[in-house]
Design a protein around this nucleic acid. Structure first.
Lengths: 243, 243
DNA sequence: CAGTGGTCTAGACCACATC
DNA sequence: ATGTGGTCTAGACCACTGG
């Protein structure tokens, strides 16, 4: 049915690329259903099986969620109840899946330093927004996060708006600014707590902490968040499953 | 063609289970080709497409490697040139993919303590083997590993045999003892270097170190290795990609 | 009931490796 | 030339959801 492939990629990967482009362009909003496999097959002039393989690949990338009997939906950070742990790797040592409570300390505007510029692909001096917050696990301060965002993508972000929002940070970014976090890279080191950090986390200065540097990417592998988390590990740890 | 499904799982998952059982039983040796899709389809009385889906799932689990034009092969730790980084997450800060050199310090036999017994699913006091080694990156000692193994699964393991072997630890375990490492869980904490560790890693006592506790599983999710790695993070970090 | 995704089949053809 | 995995198709039927 289809015209012969112009490029040298399998047809289903070309279809996947087209669907990705539509997703990135916001043709279907988060949590919305995309057209049925039959309809897409007709639109692209390929068989349903080929569309199916394309959508399977999108689902494997967490871009889309299949629900039998209902349809295929654009993935969202808002309604990820169980899979919220995809971007939340800190666990209690006893493995209880307790959700932390976030306490926002402050929101500041400033200019990108050398490191922020490099990691966020900005020029030094471009405007950034820096959020600081503490994650409490069972009331115990455990993680101090410093979140650096390119101001251009988050116009109008204020402490009041964050405080007013109920839900995860990534749900906030997605619903309020249309910035969807797709994947991330984390680099982990150990360092000694400085005085200020020690005070916030209620530990002795010099206590070894986990330092988790995360760069988060959106469509087109564009970095849109740099986050440094400092974590006490007396009662918690960072969990990683190696498939 | 096939008799109707006796259990209530999709046919391709049942086929996958059968293939897994054959793999676990060693019906095909590591690096060996498994039968072709056509032959397996005939053997199980299903279509080739169904066998394909089963094998796709096995490949996604890293149990098997597909090679177009050649066949499908039992995965092995021996010939993983690029993907050796699947179980090696420590990188240089400048991102150069330098392979470390392993220096084996000693091999001791002992009895499982409470922690080893719990993690390896043994009774306290059952015999274990403990290897200690240092990983040098560019000649700089960076990681001190303490590897605890259930002695029952590694009969005849001696320092001389490890020293004589050329290749990765997991390749050694696989080829010499038939123990294949399939997946692992890592729990990461920060702690201060004690005097002995500091000496080995050439840092000051009290220096913050990354502590990586890994429990590695073989067929049937049976734990067969507990490894604690202590890592300096002045020039290296632990890398994790979040899909 | 109709519509969706999920499974299974059978067959055709393509791409790659080997002899 | 042959055999392998990889893609694509068309159609049948199953399982689930919701009116």
């Amino acid at each position: 049915m289809s015209s012969t492939a112009p490029s040298f990629r399998p047809l289903y990967l070309q279809i996947k690329g087209l669907l990705e482009a539509s997703l990135a362009a916001g043709e279907w909003r988060p949590a919305e259903a995309i057209p049925s496999e039959q309809e897409l097959a007709g639109r692209f002039g390929v068989s349903q099986g080929t569309v199916r393989k394309a959508i399977d690949a999108l689902a494997a990338d967490n871009l889309v969620v299949r629900r039998q009997g209902k349809g295929t939906f654009v993935a969202t950070h808002t309604e990820e109840k169980a899979s919220m742990f995809r971007f939340l790797r800190i666990r209690r040592n006893d493995e209880l899946d307790v959700h932390p409570v976030s306490r926002l300390l402050d929101v500041r505007r400033g200019k990108a330093g050398a490191e922020a510029a490099r990691l966020l692909d900005l020029k030094p001096g471009e405007p950034v927004i820096v959020l600081r917050r503490v994650l409490d696990y069972d009331g115990v301060p455990t993680v101090l996060d410093e979140i650096t965002l390119p101001a251009a993508a988050f116009k109008g972000l204020t402490k009041a708006r964050v405080d007013a929002y109920h839900g995860s940070m990534y749900s906030f970014f997605e619903t309020q600014f249309g910035v969807r976090m797709l994947k991330a890279q984390e680099r982990i080191r150990a360092l000694a707590a400085d005085a200020a950090t020690a005070a916030v986390l209620a530990v002795e200065p010099g206590t070894p902490l986990l330092s988790v540097d995360r760069v988060t990417l959106t469509w087109g592998d564009r970095p849109v968040e740099w986050r440094r988390g400092l974590c006490t590990t007396a009662h918690h740890h960072y969990l990683n499953e190696l498939g």
